[in-house]
Amino acid sequence: MAEISAAARDRTPMAGTRSPARRRMRDLRAMPGFSAVAWACIVALYLPIVVLVVFSFNDNRSVVRWTEFSWRWYEAAFANEAIRGAAWTSLKIAAVATLGATVAATMAALATTRGPRFRGRALALGIVNQPLVIPEIVTAIATLSLFSLIKRLTGVNGIGYLMLAHTAFCIPFAFMPVRARLEDMTLTLEQAAADLYATPWRTFRLVTLPLLAPGILAGAMLAFVVSLDDVIITLMIAGPGETTLPIYILGAIRRGITPEINAVSTILVGVSVLLVLLLFWVQRQMRK
């Protein structure tokens, strides 16, 4: 049913040509004011970020009155020991979490998509996606409770806790594209490899893994962005000296607004946007 209507939709005139019929159809589908709302939404989504970015280049203490273009706040940010330290902490955590989450998620995706359905598959999928369902603040305080308990019992401290927590909530994000990619890949190619005398391990290394690579890359990038952006969980469980960039920014905002915050924020937004653009590009390549 859905397929038939989809096919029919493609054949209706407004889908393609610039015929008079299309112009008539377009009128039919237009709802008064809808376009205005849509444009307003897009503008509203981007305006604050644009203002933030613009004023990061302002040669002035103010974040509202434009005077002159300048790199001074970026220079200040780069010179700031605390910001450099926070950036380094963020990168370390994101790198470890990305690696751990991507490997674990890829393995889990292989287990849940390859081979026959098994009992407990739904449960396994539910557990993998658990971090997406629980409100972040709940995860944050729950993890804090566990970690403080462990810290008290073992006396072990350090950045490892943050890395582990980040790995956990990055897993479902890394899992999504890998699983989607695996579900798109037919088993036939792997069977063809086995048919041509490739052992299971060589089949995996020479066929499955290269074909899966774009999905894994996409998963890794999502995990990296998600880890880099996390505030609440990190805020709750970070020990002294484990300040990440977002936590630094939050603290700085609480102390008072400065263009330096804009500069750091712009860098962080830039990294995320670049990664997401890259991700979309990879996914487009994947579909080709």
């Binding site: 036939t188 190619l189 069977q191 048919d195 299971p200 074909l211």
Partner: peptide, 20 residues
Amino acid sequence: LPPHRRPVNTVFQNYALFPH
């Protein structure tokens, strides 16, 4: 025997050529 230990080869319906 698993497929990779059998001296038979298959031509698949949709060819199953390795795209990479």
